[in-house]
């Protein structure tokens, strides 16, 4: 019974993340939605490695979850840096302040 509880929790997390990915407009919330989806899937995978006799757990889904966590960290990092650079390139306030700082540095030389 506890096995089903963990599987359903992973599934509900996946659905929450899926909804947030589609509905939210800001890029950071979409990235967080992807992360929540990934966490739900990892929980579901680990729950499938449970066996009734505790001596014989299945180690293969746990190894797959380790690989999945590492890949999701890489994807989150790349997505966050891309979102930051998009925001900096498209925000007039930040671009103006950066141009002023560059102009000051050039005037100082």
């Amino acid at each position: 019974m506890t096995n089903l509880l963990y599987s359903f929790t992973g599934l509900i997390l996946f659905i929450f993340g899926f909804f947030a990915l589609i509905v939210c407009a800001q890029p950071l919330r979409k990235i967080l939605g992807c992360n929540v989806m990934a966490t739900g899937i990892f929980l579901f995978l680990v729950a499938t490695s449970y066996r009734a006799d505790a001596a014989a757990i299945d180690p293969v889904p746990q190894a797959m979850v380790l690989t999945g966590i590492v890949v999701s960290v890489s994807v989150t990092a790349v997505a966050l840096v891309l979102a930051t650079s998009i925001r900096q390139a498209s925000d007039p306030f930040i671009a103006r302040r950066k141009k002023k700082a560059k102009g000051d540095a050039r005037k100082k030389q």
């Binding site: 180690p59 190894a63 890489s74 994807v75 840096v81």
Partner: peptide, 28 residues
């Protein structure tokens, strides 16, 4: 058993995962 599966029996997947990690760093 988990380390054995990760590094020896499915070592090819782990090798590709470490490469993906480095590729993410190169992209950033």
């Amino acid at each position: 058993p988990v380390t054995a599966v990760l590094l020896n029996f499915r070592g090819y997947d782990t090798m590709l995962e470490v490469m993906v990690f480095l590729l993410g760093a190169m992209t950033v």
